[in-house]
Amino acid sequence: MDKEFAYSFKDYVKYGNGFKDLNPISKLTISLCLGIASCVIHRWQFGIFLFFLGIILALYTRVFDRFIRSLLVIAIPLLLLTSIMRQLQYGHVEGNTPIFKIFGWQWYKEPFIASMDIAWYIIGFSSVLLIYFLNTEMKDLMLALENRGVTHVASYIMLSSMQSIIDMRKSANTILESQKARGIETDGNVIVRMKAFFPTLGPILLSAMSGTEEKAIAMDARAFSHDGGHTYLRVLRPIPVWEYVIDALAVLVLIGSIVYAIMSSMHAL
């Protein structure tokens, strides 16, 4: 037996990366404050700032590949569609400033800026949350929440959901394969494919749902509903003071953004 591995549980959970090792809740506070600030400020400049902040953190935590791939899927359609929609709707409004032409189609500055504000605040929001999710194990977040008094049932529900998705995908693939092998068509026109849907989903669903009964019994045998105090094999690092400082700064950014938003809307009036 790997005794070293067994005894590694005596230490705090650690990943050896400054950002990744932040407490999941402080990390969430930081990400959410910045993300919401992006929504409140609603300016392309702040969105782009968060996007670059995301890139830096992605490089630092070695998740750049996954970060950029997920983000581009969101960003490209968003930038294109929002700007085109705005030009189509408001392009020819009188008093607008022409900026450039695309294949002879005149674009105007005001709707363009408006569309950039919208697209980038969403991209900014997505950037910080992506960074959060890419650097936080769900089990750590749930553990941190349990430490703050959230019931262990919540952890079970969340973590079991993630595992159930994996398990169910496996069985869906198996069933689809075997249906193909048995000659049930899974290609062809929409009606044919629709017909293949029901016999695939039905059995997976019914067996998974009926399995919950045994799962409940098994968890019950593992003292799941015991409420006389809970201990943990994995323990998170105690939160250092400087981490609270970063948290406080993030909250300040959020408050600042709200003040900014109120001021600018009053100015507009």
Binding site: V153, Y156, I157, S160, S161, Q163, S164, I165, D167, M168, R169, A172, N173, L176, T186, V190, R193, M194, A196, F197, T200, L201, I204, L205, A208, M209, G211, T212, E213, K215, A216, M219, D220, S225
Partner: peptide, 28 residues
Amino acid sequence: NRLTWFLIPIGVAVNFIGGTIILLLKLP
């Protein structure tokens, strides 16, 4: 009501799997 706790994760997985099968079968 205890069974409910155990049914919730399955419900979540079903939400996902519906989408996955649809994707595999290329339905609109």
